[in-house]
Design a protein around this nucleic acid. Structure first.
Ligand code: FES
Ligand code: FES
Lengths: 153, 153
DNA sequence: ATATTAAAGGACCTTTTTATCTTTTATTAT
DNA sequence: ATAATAAAAGATAAAAAGGTCCTTTAATAT
């Protein structure tokens, strides 16, 4: 449904929301390691997110990526739109050319409320609001296998 | 979430459920054209479904693919398992390594009931039951753009 | 028996997605 | 000014998914 690229972009942007600021920029390297995403691939994604004004960057020493207040008001849906385009979110679960009530596939009426739920959340909450929710719930958004953390302990 | 291959396989098997029988076998070509799926690609998928005993085939004149009574008792989930494996169905929507309540991603509690709904339907209904539902509702499961049908009219 | 038909099997090709590498450009601390 | 730093840009590569083609095998109608 979402490409890996989108997922990386979402998690990384939420990471910036939580850990960066205009006075504390973060390099791709740090982010890539924190959430366990391939470094140069993430760099590419970030370039595109910067062009889409979803995140911000500055070059040079103490440079890196960060969110401005304005950036924080963008939505997760903006990220998806920027990376994957919106069409992928609206695909029929079984591949029919149209996903709507006109010629619904056998699972359409299970899929539709889910889609609306996800879409609503991605569209109506800003990145910053989204992030606050995550912090409040004490979640760790990393692709690292958390079980390895337990072992290390 | 599902590969295109799985989707093709599901729609094609449901087509067999509706249109084939032990005395009326259908060739890949006919099916591929009916639901608008690439012919040789579908042939490969069917080979695999036959090996998985989800559909049946006979070679030679009047040969083709069909469902036995036993085949009809298999489930859509069997098809998915046979083509994609089950892991793809259980992936976290945002790519976290585990999708469960332990470290749920921000949309986990929207995703989970959906997954359960889909999974339940795919697991608890046999292919034949599934098909009857579709017939009762008068659905057309083809990948063809239906709007072109309107134009042709 | 033979020709015909349609699936099975295996090799191969294309496109898309994911990932990497190298060079250039901008920023800033010294 | 200069060196160091980090992103931008662009070219390339590897992997996965999707799709095609050709030869072999099995079934059957004649
Ligand atoms: S028509 Fe298939 S999910 Fe909507
Ligand atoms: S943890 Fe992300 S969907 Fe379940």
């Amino acid at each position: 449904m979402l490409s890996r690229a989108s997922k990386y972009a979402i998690l990384s942007t939420l990471f910036l929301a939580e850990h960066s600021s205009e006075t504390h920029k973060i390099s791709v390297k740090v982010i890539a390691e924190s959430i366990d995403v391939p470094n140069p691939f993430l760099a590419k994604l970030f370039q595109q997110l910067v062009r889409g004004k979803i995140i911000s960057s500055t070059k040079g020493p103490n440079g890196g990526f960060y969110l401005t207040k304005k950036n924080g008001k963008r939505t997760v849906l903006d990220i998806i739109e920027n990376i994957d385009g919106l069409s992928r979110l609206n695909e029929c679960f079984l591949g029919l050319s149209e996903c709507d009530g006109l010629n619904p596939c056998p699972v359409h009426f299970i899929v539709e409320p889910f889609k609306n739920g996800i879409l609503g959340k991605f569209r109506d909450l800003s990145i910053m609001e989204f992030s606050k929710e995550i912090i409040a719930q004490g979640r760790k958004l990393t692709l690292k296998d958390i079980s390895t953390d337990f072992e290390k302990k």
